[in-house]
Amino acid sequence: MTEIQPDLKTSLGSLTLKNPVLTASGTFGYGQEFSSLVDPNLLGGIVVKGLSLKPRAGNRPPRTVETPCGMLNAIGLANMGVDAFVEKRLPLLRELDTVVIANIYGHTIDEYGTVAARLKGVEGISAIEVNISCPNVDGGGMAFGTDPDISARVTEQVLKKADKPVIVKLSPNVTDIRAVARAVERAGAEGISLINTLTGMAIDIETRLPRLANISGGLSGPAIRPVALHMVYQVVKAVRIPVIGIGGIMDYRDAPEFLIAGAKAVQVGTASFVNPRASLDIVEGLKAFCQGHGITAIDEIIGTMRLR
């Protein structure tokens, strides 16, 4: 008897993914770093490292530190800049038969628009993911994404300049994530991804130095999964646009949790550091999960949490 091949296709607005597993921004480089171990063509998509208008050197080291069931990072959004990316890295990504999403950020609302404009007409990028978790220079360093109105204005600015679907990536460092989610939906976002990292810190008690030179950093990994799952659940209930779940997804058992909570797709971040093949293992695991549960299409489980 041949096993039924479950249909893993999922859609994010106008985008169709061959399966619901993408790699998260900043954890998979520009798609080539792991390519000898993971065939990117088998993934639902790749979200590349955050791109800014100008190249950025990043923060002073140390930039990462391990914490219980997770890690803190303060990379400082080091990247080659959007133009160098298009020139040097995109040509290889273009050959891939998968969805490539450009993650972007700016220091001012205008700059977000300018980065989006640089990607206009550029082939090989299926969508733009807007990182609104970075510090707002005009706003005194507070992240754009902590204010619903500013989040909406960033979204509008990117939409004005972009010719591709726009997904807004939310910061969890807020009191009520639903307010931000609704604001970016009203502003016209085609999708929402969440969560970015949670702000945290660690101190070396011998030297009394912060373990990160930047003092604080972003917490990721399995430690944040329950928080991420709850926020995804809240946002799914608050908006109608598709939601991508991110946060501490390590293996195929974690991914359905987010799908059942209502996410249309998931992104795998820190797990790739621990197991470079994690994203691919999750695709395979989802297939087996469907087969084991008599599910013929992954769609069938999205948003199907039962109530006690």
């Binding site: 480089g29 770093e33 080291p61 890690m71 990072n73 790739s272 550091f273």
Partner: peptide, 14 residues
Amino acid sequence: TSMACGVGACHGCA
């Protein structure tokens, strides 16, 4: 240095 990925993907080992 401290390293998260070891393969050039995280930019942590600067």
